[in-house]
């Protein structure tokens, strides 16, 4: 009874929000539209306020990009604001992934000497670091300065000791995020949340394994980049998969349930994009399915968070693809629907 009441309000609200997402039947139509038409459509949808607000400052695809990011950040912030107790804690912890995203973006930007505005374009202030915090951090000139500005946050231990290796601290940030969130989930005893997280870790590790295997990296280098705590891919599975050659690795994957996501394209593993899109889709379908098994739990909220992110990614892909005149098939291959 307790759990039912605790989640009734937020789940009903999230379900109503999910019903307003752009239906997947719309994406093929977007592919036939021009950028101004898509922007007009978006300007009349749930993104209306963001497009109107930012319309004075930006135009074209920049307006589109900023409106999507702002809407995503506001939607996620709203979830934190309207939830209570356990749901609030779990959503807050889960959305810390955006802090990781923002820190990585700022550090990458500083590392490559990008302008402040360019870095700002890719930030989504949906985590615990607000827009103003991020603005302050961006103003710092160097990577070391950015790291020093983050002192006192939960992310600092992953960043301190930076010696110029960007991949290493990015990997440290991911590991810190997942170890912190798993600890928070274990403290609350919410097994459904843990199950969702562990599946997400598996999918992330699988993507990483595919990329590393394709790049021909050695076992030791690969295992350093993998995140522990997966559902099916435990430490020994990851160690075994890391040591196999690419064809052996593909055959070994048949033992796991994730194989169903990529089985139909097993003869054409030449394109990483196809594999990653399939794995993203698997994650989306999985989240949606288990959210119906446990309707009054944190899962429908996580399903919405994931669906919203994929909607924004799809829209961005379509517009960026059209801007760079990519063929329709390539844009379509990138869409998760």
């Amino acid at each position: 009874m307790g759990n039912t009441v605790k989640y009734a309000y937020i789940v009903a609200r999230v379900r109503a929000m999910k019903s307003k997402l752009i239906p997947k039947e719309m994406y093929p139509k977007f592919l036939n539209m021009e950028i101004p038409e898509i922007t007009r459509f978006i300007g009349e949808s749930e993104y209306k306020n963001d497009v109107e607000e930012l319309g004075k400052k930006y135009s074209g695809t920049d307006l589109f990009e900023h409106a999507l990011n702002q809407n995503l950040a506001l939607t996620y912030r709203k979830l934190i604001e309207v939830s209570q107790n356990e749901a609030n804690l779990l959503i807050t912890e889960y959305l810390r992934s955006w802090d990781i995203w923002n820190i990585k973006t700022i550090i990458r930007g500083k590392f490559s000497g990008a302008k402040e505005e360019e870095i700002l374009e890719d930030l989504v202030s949906a985590g615990q670091l607000g827009y103003r915090d991020l603005l302050e951090i961006i103003k710092v000139g160097t990577v070391e300065g950015v790291i020093a500005a983050l002192e006192g946050t939960p992310y600092y231990p992953a960043l301190e000791g930076f010696k110029g290796n960007l991949a290493e601290i990015e990997n440290n940030l991911d590991r810190t995020y997942y170890s912190n969130i798993i600890k928070a989930a274990e403290d609350t005893g919410n097994k459904l949340f843990l199950k969702f997280l562990r599946t997400e870790i598996d999918l992330k590790n699988l993507k990483m394994l595919f990329r590393m295997k394709r790049a021909g990296m050695e076992r030791d280098e690969i295992t350093k980049l993998l995140i522990p705590g997966g559902m099916e891919l435990k430490a020994n599975d990851l160690a075994r998969l890391s040591s196999l050659t690419f064809p052996e690795f593909v055959r070994a994957l048949e033992e796991y349930s994730y194989w169903e996501a990529i089985a139909d394209i097993s003869n054409e593993f030449t394109s990483l994009i196809n594999i990653e899109t399939r794995l993203d889709k698997y994650g989306l379908v999985y989240a949606s399915r288990i959210s119906y098994y446990y309707p009054l739990s944190v899962l429908p909220i996580l399903d919405y968070i994931l669906s919203k992110k994929i909607e924004v990614d799809n829209l961005r892909m379509i517009v960026r693809g059209k801007e760079t005149t990519l063929p329709e098939e390539i844009i379509k291959a990138h869409l998760v629907m």
Binding site: M1, T4, V5, A8, Y9, I10, V11, A12, R13, R15, A16, M17, S19, K20, V82, L296
Partner: peptide
């Protein structure tokens, strides 16, 4: 009352959105 509390909470949640 016990039945209504969850339904009421859900109804208010849905109404807040639409």
């Amino acid at each position: 009352g016990m039945g209504e509390q969850a339904i009421g909470a859900a109804a208010v949640g849905a109404m807040a959105e639409d």
